[in-house]
């Protein structure tokens, strides 16, 4: 898969708008200001994707869902453990740092966060592209980064050895909360999206 600089820019913009919308939802949820850095759009070899998350064995929380509709694909929202716990503490109105592992309660809170973030992300994309895009019900897993990333890499593995990663970083004010969005369009969906935003592919 090869992308021109214009297509990369277009995808960056897609990621930017989607993540901006998601950051607003997140900030309303936890009632704190959220900073978001400019998404990086990268084509990465399989092995390097887990490195983004701190190494293959780093424990992370992954919220995975399918994108249904005109341009199918997958979304994976990944949080380092400390960020995931701090985020759910904020959501539940307790002092961040109190929770130290993923209880059933924090897991269900994380699912909810993932659900809302993904929906707002997709809404922004749908608005921008006039495509119909709906999220599936999310699934959650807290485990090694490589094991979690492998799920989407396997899907992509059927078409190549690199993953298209649209990376986004959220940082909550006074609290280092990092999360990474991976938007993974199915093979045919990339060109549908490009066409919809007026960049030929």
């Amino acid at each position: 898969m090869q992308l021109t600089p214009i297509e990369m820019d277009a995808l960056k913009e897609v990621g930017n708008i989607g993540a901006g919308n998601a950051a607003t939802s997140l900030s309303q949820m936890i009632n704190r200001r959220i900073h978001m850095n400019v998404p990086l759009v990268k084509l990465l070899p399989f092995d390097e994707v887990a490195e983004l998350l701190g190494g293959p064995e780093t424990e992370v929380a992954g919220i995975y869902l399918k994108v249904l509709g005109d341009a199918p694909g997958s979304i994976l929202f990944v949080l380092p453990v400390e960020s995931g716990l701090a985020l759910t503490d904020m959501l539940m109105g307790i002092e961040p740092g109190i929770s130290t592992d993923f209880s059933e309660m924090t897991q269900s809170a994380l699912m909810e966060i993932g659900n809302i973030l993904a929906a707002s992300y997709l809404n922004a994309l749908a608005d921008m592209t006039s495509l119909s895009l709906q999220p599936s019900i999310p699934a959650l897993s807290c485990d090694m980064a490589a094991a979690i990333m492998s799920v989407i890499l396997v899907e992509l593995g059927e078409v190549g050895d690199t993953a298209l990663v649209i990376e986004t970083e959220f940082i909550a004010e006074n609290r280092d909360i990092k999360g990474y969005f991976f938007l993974l369009p199915d093979p045919g969906s990339l060109s549908i999206m490009m066409k919809a935003i007026g960049v030929g592919l």
Binding site: A145, A147, S150
Partner: peptide, 23 residues
């Protein structure tokens, strides 16, 4: 040994692969 990778080794070396999920 990375993802979608394979290697051969002889005594006394160890072969390691990290974070197998569905792989």
């Amino acid at each position: 040994v990375g993802m979608a990778d394979l290697k051969v080794a002889t005594e006394p070396d160890k072969l390691v692969t990290l974070g197998l999920g569905s792989c």
